[in-house]
Design a protein around this nucleic acid. Structure first.
Length: 272
DNA sequence: AAATTCTCCTGAAGGC
DNA sequence: TGCCTTCAGGAGAATT
């Protein structure tokens, strides 16, 4: 389930292999992803140099001499640097081929995306309404409080809304709420500034710690070299329903919010 | 406008 | 062994 730390891990892994390199070929085996891979994409990308590889939320952006490639890993996608070509597996949907290496995209569930825009990527429909980057200095308790004004949703849905803040998915939302001692269903209009400050801090802390560990591998996340992430060992609540809270020993609760499993500690994260 | 529900997809896991 | 059901989830689209 690639969230911000997993995307960042993949991005840092592929960066040195593709920046300032020229795309030589695009091989598409399965164009049907979240959106169909645009028909003329190979023609658009061929012989273009990658100026830099960046990230916006959970999207990876390859800035080219002309235009930008937009990549998303969906929930089961991975990008691998192939230093030598092997025959593709069933779910290896496309390759971006360079002179010395190739980027191979694998995604069993096909929720990922491979798109191209000739214009300012920040104006692309998928990117233009995205919220703030959580690791920015300007992501603060004040910011969250401002965004929460007039809303009635629970805090977990709030911080998972990519229009509020990007990069926080089901795993890190649960973890951040535990650290901030907030019940996932706490209505955002009842949260104090102090609590919002703790929450913003908790999100930064957990994302940064996860990046340091190379992301979280629960089932299938792999970095650009096929390695697992090691943040799972640090998870306080996610995937730990029914097990004792590390802080107070009470068995952790499982509830479903918007059809997402949500684990929390009733005692450490009380609802007012 | 905001909130909720539906949808895409397939592998894994559990029940019988 | 095998078939069926359920679950996992990012996030846009459709609906309320």
């Amino acid at each position: 389930m690639p969230e911000l730390p997993e995307v960042e891990t993949v991005l840092q892994g592929i960066k040195p292999y593709i920046e300032h390199k020229t795309i030589r070929n695009i091989v598409i085996r399965q164009p049907k992803l979240r959106w169909a891979i645009p028909k003329g994409i190979a023609r658009m990308l061929k012989d273009q140099r990658v100026i830099e590889a960046t990230r916006r939320g959970k999207y990876m952006l390859l800035k080219l001499e002309k235009g930008t490639v937009i990549l998303h890993l969906g929930m089961s996608g991975s990008l691998k640097v192939m230093t030598q070509m092997t025959s593709p597996d069933k779910h290896d949907h496309f390759d971006i081929v360079f002179d010395d290496i190739c980027l191979r995209f694998t995604d069993a569930r096909r929720f990922g995306a491979f798109l191209y825009t000739a214009d300012d990527p920040d104006q692309h429909p998928l990117l233009k309404d995205l919220g703030i980057e959580p690791l920015r200095r300007t992501f603060t308790g004040h910011y969250l409080q401002r965004q929460a004004k007039g809303r009635k949703i629970g805090v977990k849905q709030f911080i998972m809304n990519q229009k509020i803040v990007v990069g926080v998915g089901n795993i890190y939302a649960a973890e951040a709420l535990f650290i901030a001692s907030l019940h996932p269903m706490t209505p955002v209009d009842s949260i104090t500034l102090t609590q919002f400050e703790q929450l913003a801090r908790a999100i930064k802390t957990v994302l940064q710690a996860a990046i340091k560990k190379g992301g979280t591998t629960l089932r299938d996340f792999k970095d650009s070299k096929g390695r697992s992430g090691y943040f799972k060992q640090k998870l306080n609540v996610y995937d730990r329903a029914g097990q004792p809270c590390y802080r107070c020993n009470l068995l952790l609760e499982l509830m479903r919010i918007q059809n997402r499993s949500t684990v929390f500690c009733k005692r450490c994260q009380p609802i007012e």
